[in-house]
Simulated assay, not measured.
Amino acid sequence: MNANVKFSAKGQVVIPKDVRDRYLFVNGAVVEMVEMPEGVLLKRPKSQKAATAEEAWERLRAVVKYDGPVFSDDEVRDSIDQMFREKYGTPMP
């Protein structure tokens, strides 16, 4: 993909959303900037680990393109327990 982007007054550029999603450039992600004769190359560092669990979930949601509601662990457990009770008539072991 090729795109023309403008610099802001602060020297910032916006990377198009489809590119950010494709390369997992989520909020706060670190990118490597490499100077080349023909310009500047932005790329993901070879090993980019999530700083927090929330960042890991954000990356996962970007990969699977999930934009639905976010559920807490307790909500997921309660829902599974309810389904188990409905099916087997007893709480989940």
Rank of each mutant, 00 (worst) to 15 (best):
K10C: 08
P69D: 13
Q82C: 02
D67K: 08
R22V: 03
M83I: 08
P93Y: 07
T90V: 14
I80A: 07
M1D: 15
G28N: 03
D21A: 03
R20M: 07
P16A: 09
N2P: 01
A56V: 09
D78K: 08
D67T: 07
D73K: 15
A3C: 04
V14S: 01
D73W: 10
D74E: 13
M1H: 15
A29I: 03
V40L: 13
V63F: 05
Y66Q: 05
R44M: 12
V63P: 01
R44I: 07
Q82A: 08
F25I: 15
G68I: 06
M92T: 01
Y88P: 00
V70C: 14
A3Q: 08
K10P: 08
K43R: 14
F25R: 02
M36T: 14
G89T: 11
Q48H: 10
A62R: 09
Y23N: 04
K43P: 10
L60A: 12
M33L: 06
S8P: 09
P45A: 13
A29R: 05
R85G: 07
I80N: 03
E86C: 05
V63N: 03
W57R: 10
S72I: 03
E58I: 03
E55Y: 02
M1A: 15
P69E: 14
A29N: 07
V40S: 07
Y23A: 02
L24Q: 11
V70I: 14
S72E: 06
F7L: 14
V31D: 08
R59G: 04
N2M: 02
E86A: 12
K49Y: 13
A9Y: 05
E75T: 11
V30G: 03
T52H: 08
K46W: 10
E38S: 12
N27E: 07
P91N: 00
F84T: 07
E54K: 11
Q12V: 05
D81R: 01
S79Q: 03
P45K: 13
N27G: 02
T90D: 05
S79T: 03
E54P: 02
M33D: 00
P45W: 15
D73R: 14
R20Q: 11
G89D: 11
M83H: 09
Y23T: 01
K17R: 13
V70D: 15
E55V: 04
Q48W: 09
F71Y: 13
V26I: 14
G89S: 11
D78V: 01
Q48E: 15
V31M: 14
A56S: 13
Y66L: 04
E58P: 01
V76A: 04
M33P: 01
A53F: 01
D81V: 01
D18I: 04
V70S: 15
V31W: 10
I15G: 05
A62E: 11
G28V: 01
K46L: 13
V76F: 04
D18Q: 09
R77M: 11
S47V: 12
P37N: 12
K49M: 12
A62K: 11
T52S: 13
P16T: 10
V30R: 11
R59S: 03
G68L: 05
F71N: 02
P69F: 05
Q12L: 10
G68P: 06
E32G: 05
F84C: 04
Q82R: 11
Q12S: 10
V34N: 06
V19L: 13
R61G: 14
L24D: 12
V19A: 15
D18R: 09
A50I: 00
M92P: 02
A9V: 06
M1P: 13
V14A: 01
V19C: 10
I15N: 05
